[in-house]
Design a protein around this nucleic acid. Structure first.
Lengths: 355, 355
DNA sequence: TAATATATCGGGTACGTACACGTAATAGGT
DNA sequence: ACCTATTACGTGTACGTACCCGATATATTA
């Protein structure tokens, strides 16, 4: 059985036939190149409309010698946290799917605790030919500077995992932080009902990521307010991310406040809190945190962590690359924001979770 | 910048050059066609190995006149439940992505309450040329008959949403039912703690889908057993799916058992239970059920339903078609089972859920 | 008027693969 | 020895698009 069974004609050849011109002329119109009179151009455009011509991507990519250079700029996978391993996996999955279409992905990593590494990587990036960028704009000031350069060079960029709104990015792919915190509060409330205090902990070394955590905190508080919950909310910031610092602060907090029923950790470092609770044999405190990390999963299995909220970091990476691909290669419009689902992971469903 | 910047040669042409034969001979070897001496064949195979030759899918699909016919056989979207709308959406999304690669999808639907419609559709399917099938094996006996015919015709088939194990399907894509019920129990227990009875309700007209629900029930009970929960579990089967039947049975049950704390409905018909609870102004019963249907979401918003468990039916459809595509067109191996994640949907995160 | 520039277009080849067809060499049969 | 089959290849065209290179016609300039 052959492809043309349906006897539908289309393609540049048919357009050329109808317009009584050559294929080359049709091609010029399609690519908006010069060398075509307005009359024939309009005629051809009309025929394209009429036929609802869809270019054959296969033939297009095969014939085109153009090679697309995509660049990613994300935090390196540190010993501190392997969070960024997941987006990288997604990026590599996308890469393997589209590399045969003439797309090359250059990978740049920076140290989350060092702005200068971010800046120096951005400099390197712009030394080469770049068609599109997928980046995590962790440092706001430095990111703004970088995207200004990109705008001048007319290089489109996609934000991943955290957003800088109204910066004319091609799109943002990542969590909606407010509702993420809001859900965290619901889970906390579910766990302890209306009794006991709840503790919010931000564990972050870098002040720049802080607005991130704050937005989650807002959502968290909003839930208790919206639902008229009277639980007292206590907040703690921890700038030193090592275990000992976390432990000593927790120790202090738990002696001051005897009736804490639940702890909400606003990022993936919930495992260090879990470690403390386990070591201290504290079992009457419910714990909620973020991200499908191996360490966190272990405590989820132990019932030390009750809920993990996760937003498919791997899919974020995958979709980020695909957004560039669809926009630049397939010339398809992509939606400005793609909020990831806010997934709830428990001991009972983690086995089936796809990061 | 051109594609061949990397100066890497490959492709049949290069293989032919190295083997000192023509392209056609290489092509014969690649497609395992006859007309090549063992000596040259082995030589060419060795070179292919050495070069790690990856055929160019673009050129392959462009040059090939072969048209793939995929068939889907799933329940029709009934007024009773729009559940199958989601998988169909996923199928159509996949279709739009791969139709340009010479793939056509023929859609067959059957009535979930009528085995004969299933059988008659299977007969129709086999009248035409079919390269692969995506089906929901709702009726076991009839499905077994059908896939026997498929095996004879060497047509690969993918199961979706429910499985018939050890039937040599290309793969199964759908939920793992036991853990799904297990999670339901955890959520129920979370909602009512250790007090009160829990009620399991199977609402299903067709006895054939019943094993489905039973497996979930097993998981549900297992949770309570594993965790030494003493809550009494009451079970109810409802064969008449109309609201009045459901309502009258619930009425009866709730008068007999005064202290029911939570209800677990094993499928998407949880909305009818919700409707009853709302109409009866019963607020002290927590409700857990299945699937992201508009009706269910409304009750989720009203706080009548507490949790919905959902397993991405749309993605199931998408992945089902893609599994066929990858296996038949790209000649890539696909894993035998792909269990969908078991997602928890609440009032706080439903806005961001991707079905 | 002739030379030259510019605008408008067509011919033809290439991308990497599939496959129909032709051809040469060998084998087997009479 | 001749004819026929069979085996083992090579040649060439097609898929739909991109784009180089030229050809022709018209406009501009000296």
């Amino acid at each position: 059985m052959k492809k043309d069974d349906g006897l539908e004609l289309s393609g540049v050849k048919e357009i050329a036939r109808r317009a009584n011109v050559s294929i080359a002329t049709v091609d010029r119109v399609i690519h908006n190149r010069s060398g075509v009179s307005n009359k024939t151009k309009n005629n051809i455009l009309a025929i394209i409309q009429e036929l609802d011509y869809q270019p054959n991507i296969l033939a297009r990519r095969l014939a085109s010698k153009k090679l697309f250079h995509f660049v990613i700029l994300i935090p390196a996978i540190s010993e501190e946290t392997e969070f960024w391993k997941a987006p990288l996996n997604g990026i590599e999955q996308a890469e393997s799917e589209i590399k045969q279409y003439g797309i090359k992905i250059e990978k740049y990593f920076f140290d989350q605790n060092d702005k200068r590494s971010f800046v120096s990587q951005t400099k390197k990036i712009l030394k080469n030919k770049v068609d599109g960028i997928l980046m995590a704009p962790s440092f706001i000031e430095e990111s703004l500077e970088f995207i200004k350069a990109c705008q001048d060079l007319k290089i489109p960029y996609v934000f991943i995992n955290s957003d800088i709104p109204s910066q004319d990015s091609l799109c943002y792919i990542g969590p909606e932080l407010f509702h993420s915190g809001y859900l965290g509060a619901r889970l906390a409330n579910f766990a302890i009902k209306d009794h006991g205090k709840v503790l919010i902990i931000n564990i972050s070394k870098e002040i720049d990521n802080y607005h991130h955590l704050l937005r989650k905190e807002e959502g968290f508080r909003a839930y208790f307010q919206d639902n008229n919950k009277k639980n007292e909310i206590i907040k703690a910031d921890i700038r030193q991310t090592d275990y000992n610092s976390v432990a000593s602060l927790l120790d202090e907090l738990l002696t001051t406040h005897s009736d804490i029923g639940a702890v909400f950790v606003t990022n993936s470092r919930v495992f260090s809190v879990a470690q403390f609770l386990e070591k201290s044999s504290i079992k009457n405190i419910r714990l909620i945190g973020y991200d499908f990390l191996q360490e966190n999963i272990e405590y989820l299995k132990n019932d030390v962590i009750d809920f993990l909220i996760c937003q498919k970091p791997q899919e974020q990476g995958y979709r980020g690359i695909m957004a560039l691909y669809q926009n630049l290669v397939l010339d398809v419009a992509v939606s400005k924001t793609y909020f990831m689902p806010i997934d709830i992971i428990t001991k009972e469903n983690y086995l089936f979770y796809r990061n």
